[in-house]
Amino acid sequence: MEILSVQSLNKSYGTHVALKDFNLSVAEGLVFGLLGPNGAGKTTFIRIVNQIIDQDSGEIFIKGQPLKMRHVRNIGYLPEERGLYKTMKVKEQLLYFARIKGLGKQDAIKKITSWLEKLNLTKWKDNKIQDLSKGMAQKVQFIATVIHQPDLLILDEPFSGFDPVNAEIIKNEILELKRQGTTIILSTHRMESVELLCDHIAMINQARKILDGPVKAIKNESKTNQFKVKMMVEDQTNMPPWGDVIAAEGQVEFTTSLNGQAPNALLNDLMQYGEILGFEEIVPSIEEIFIQKINESHEG
């Protein structure tokens, strides 16, 4: 079941095209990565889904129904530029947002208490936002986003501003929400942060989608069938033409390709030159795939 689907979405600001014929569908229960450099159109897309701005043309469906304001109420949205009322206390602020999003007072208080506990913020609950560190304020904002248990969570650059420890905490919370059945759209220009988190990614560059698919499939497709090999070679004068050879004291590191062989056949071939210490397939990172795709799209 698709929780969100978008058909030929267009949006321009004056002469600047922010989204061009943009299609996307997000399956329920996944962590969906929306990747792209700054200014690619990610935030525009998110703002349209949240009905903050209107598209010029195109259609958006939530669980098969045309997007209405009441659907938006079931979306949790964490904007890229975080905002809280600086002079309001943590607890009051969360209560305000929770109630604006339709939670009853008692229910809201219960949820706030448990979230503050979970993110180690309980002792700060009566402090004003302006007295909190940036990371703590970010955590408060995260709670404000998820407090009403939305079916769809849209996080714009969720890890910016977090130190590695807190980023890990948030990452775990995202995975926990996924386990509970929440669909999460995660928008970022920092690819390394999503590689292990996302099930599915879409890449946007200059208002267009340039790649869309499950992370595993994308990685498989991008395989070059190259292997990185490390082995002991006694006689280094008699080696085949391997690539990127680094030779030292009887040890050699190099890359080689399958050339149509199965990996085991390649291994068999290599064994005759010496003792194999390491044999690893070279798989490009999402970031490398992304850069490659952008280059392709520029050439095309």
Binding site: I75, Y77, P79, Y85
Partner: peptide, 16 residues
């Protein structure tokens, strides 16, 4: 201006 510049508004307009 506070709500606008801090983007609080973007969270609020989805509910109001």
């Amino acid at each position: 201006i506070e709500e606008k510049s801090s983007r609080i508004i973007e969270i609020l307009v989805s509910s109001l």
